[in-house]
Amino acid sequence: MSGIGSSVRIDHAVVSGTFSLDGETHRVDNNIWVVGDDTECVVIDAPHDVDAIMEVVGERQVRAILLTHAHDDHCRVAPALRERVVAPIMLHPDEKPLWELTHVQDGEGHLWDVDLADGFEVQVAGTTLRALHTPGHAPGAVCFHAPALGCVFTGDTLFHGGPGATGRSFSDRPTLEASIRASLWQLPDDTVVHTGHGDDTTIGAEKAALG
């Protein structure tokens, strides 16, 4: 875990499971990111195991479940987590085809609760997370920029070592690189990148590598 600021902090854990798409299944380790203070928080992505997520959340009230995209290793337990903590799932609507590979509509015809869009802001514990629509790895992929914390949560859009994977259904490499240049390269170079898998990096380090 890492603390930032006097009250708002970022808590982190890693959980293991599987990722399945296009008839292939792979073992993966996913990062769990929770942003908040001692009383409230938001959860970024819901991979594999609700109990593991709740170990990071603790007794805090979850204000929202923010999904960077709808690959199954990022959203598989989102509905179960929503039931546990009674908080809305937020996802970009362009992710509907991927979401429906893992989840069906509920009895009311709902898929998730709140549509994300570029510039959508979520407030928690006195700080703001701003959604940046960064399609390419997935059509509705979103990064969450927290300016006051000097970081951005990139899901699978940008990793330590470069852009996320493409070559699977609903992904496109030129679109991904264009998204990164248009949205993420506009952030300060010292912005810490908290990824969906693996180690942190910075915008400046990845900008130098990708060009």
Rank of each mutant, 00 (worst) to 15 (best):
V50A: 10
V50F: 11
E55G: 11
L81C: 11
E121K: 14
T68H: 02
A80C: 08
M90P: 04
E83G: 14
S20Y: 00
E100P: 00
G17P: 06
R84E: 09
V34F: 05
H71I: 07
S16E: 15
P47K: 09
I32P: 13
L66W: 03
L116M: 14
D94P: 02
V28K: 13
C41K: 06
E83N: 12
T127F: 04
E24R: 15
H74F: 04
H92S: 02
H69T: 07
G107R: 12
G23W: 07
D49M: 01
R27S: 11
E121C: 09
C41H: 05
D106M: 03
H74A: 08
P93A: 04
G17S: 09
P88L: 01
D38E: 15
D29T: 06
E83K: 14
R63F: 00
L66I: 07
E83M: 11
A70N: 05
R9S: 14
V86H: 13
P97C: 05
H74N: 10
P79T: 05
A46V: 02
F120W: 08
T39A: 13
E121M: 06
T18Y: 12
F120C: 04
L21H: 09
E24N: 11
A117K: 12
R130I: 14
V14L: 12
V104M: 08
L116K: 09
F120Q: 09
A87L: 08
H26F: 13
M90E: 13
N31C: 11
R82C: 04
I65M: 07
A46W: 01
V28D: 05
T127P: 03
A46P: 04
D113R: 08
V104A: 14
A52Q: 15
I10M: 10
D118M: 05
V56P: 08
A70R: 00
E59S: 14
V57C: 09
V62Q: 13
V28W: 08
L21C: 10
G36V: 05
R130C: 07
W99K: 00
D73P: 02
V50D: 14
A52K: 14
R9L: 02
E59H: 07
R130F: 00
G119D: 11
V62T: 14
V124Q: 13
W99T: 00
F19T: 04
E40D: 12
E83F: 03
V104Q: 15
E108M: 08
G126A: 11
T127K: 06
L98M: 15
Q61K: 13
D38M: 02
T39F: 06
D29K: 10
W99A: 01
F120Y: 12
D118K: 03
R27Y: 07
A52R: 15
W99S: 01
R60I: 03
Q61N: 12
H48W: 04
W33C: 07
T18L: 08
W99M: 00
G109C: 10
T25I: 07
D73A: 11
G36S: 07
W33V: 15
P88K: 03
S20A: 15
D113E: 13
T127Y: 05
E83C: 06
D72V: 11
I32V: 15
D29F: 02
T102L: 02
W112S: 00
H92R: 06
V86C: 08
Q61D: 13
T68R: 03
H92Y: 05
Q123S: 11
E95H: 00
H48L: 03
